[in-house]
Amino acid sequence: MNIFRFSGDMTHLMSVLVLLLKIHTIKSCAGISLKTQELYALVFLARYLDIVTNFISLYNTIMKLIFLGSSFMIVWYIRRHRIVRRSYDKEHDTFRHLFLVLPCFILALLINERSAFKEIMWTFSLYLEAVAILPQLVLLQRTKNIDNLTGQYVFFLGAYRALYICNWIYRYFTEPHYVHWITWISGLVQTLLYADFFYYYFNSWKNNVKLQLPA
């Protein structure tokens, strides 16, 4: 495992921890899109179907369990927790799941590396992960005051994607036959979705003003 891949996993982990920290300690999910969190739970469920049958390393298995567990825990907090659910911004979080899930599933049926069930689900998870952040970005745009933890959550997620691209470039040059078009293109699309956010995030940081995305 190279440094980019490891740093990418760690920033991914950081994003989840920042979100759980916000929800658990402040007991608030203000500015967090439940739609995006539910899509991530579905992404991990579809991708880690091989968790018991395909052992790669203890590191992989533990990380998979963390991402699966945390994504369902976050959804539970927002939907069910007595206090947390009151801060959920239902009026502004209106993105429809099906608009993202259905096209991704159809695309996975049409474009995949092998048409086995687990392979299609894995491909579906890649496509869905690429667009799962959209409801969150839309919600951020509609939110007047983005708090620091929410901003950091999205920043860490974007950093994770950028580092994975560095990881693929590194692996392409160091490993023979390492070519994965589906992974790369969906990963690139996903990272580009953060470009706009990053622009405003760094500007607010540089000018020391509160983060706000233009409508």
Partner: peptide, 10 residues
């Protein structure tokens, strides 16, 4: 294509 290689990322 080695499927183990394909699935070693998270």
């Amino acid at each position: 294509l080695n499927s183990g290689q394909l699935h070693d990322e998270l």
